[in-house]
Amino acid sequence: MRGESRRVRKANMATPMQRPEGALLRQNEHEELREELEGIAREIRWDIVRMIGLAQSGHPGGSLSCTDILVCLYFHAMNHDPRRPHWPGRDRFVLSKGHAAPALYAVLARSGYFERDELWHLRQLGSILQGHPDRLKTPGVEISTGSLGQGLAAACGMALGLRMDGNPARVYALIGDGESQEGGIWEAAMLAGHHCLGNLTAILDQNGMQIDGSCCEVVGLGDVAAKWRAFGWEVEEVDGHDVVEVCRALDKVASAALPGMVVANTVKGKGVSFMENNVDFHGKAPTPEEMERALKEIEGS
């Protein structure tokens, strides 16, 4: 099964704590990893575009911008077992920017949490795949999200709970840059910093755009890496579409005693030329013609 190969590879690797910094993966392993993850990401993007296209509803821009990050998490960084979604030792993932649900669903299906055919029922009445993640309906979803600014705090709660139990599992949370205008993000940032939640990693999908325009024009975040450092987090800034760089950053911040933040610079709508940096596709589905064009473009990439 697909989840198996990743787990076997992880088991064969030394733990991040034992590896000297900068030598997490040998060069040939880099290229193998890049090829594997980029291949998966291509399939995930295809699934995202098709499911939103069929639903005629959903958020393609922010789903495509975080695709590579989610692929790095589910097929490299995270220790999880789709056959045992409630296994206590699993790493947890929280999609704080819940509107990117299509990306999460595609990754969960690819991992084996449910059948891929479910994807084509996104947002339909009776579907296990709601417009935003619902933990009671979708296997692999840890907590329901959608109202922005709450998922990171929930992830803090999970990290605290695991630490109380002496459970070595990690918690990962993906937040958006538009979402970072919510005060709740910074309340959680403060709590995690105060409690030195070293078992928590947040990833910022910094695609620079939100519904009303570019984040800089709406309410700019300023030097976001400096902000997270000031809150007591270990921060790495990467190209969010370079899978090897993202994996390296995830591994690196996981080895720190502080909560980890990976600022991932991304492109909204990444992978579909007419959606890239096009704010119109924040929350708008492609027409059937646009969907076909986008799918062909992804197939040829």
Binding site: G151, M158, M190
Partner: peptide, 20 residues
């Protein structure tokens, strides 16, 4: 959780999600 009631509730949810 300090003077942060919204954070209190969302953090409580996360703790409960780990079985507490």
């Amino acid at each position: 959780c300090g003077v942060a009631e919204q954070n209190l509730m969302a953090t409580a949810a996360g703790l409960a999600a780990t079985g507490k």
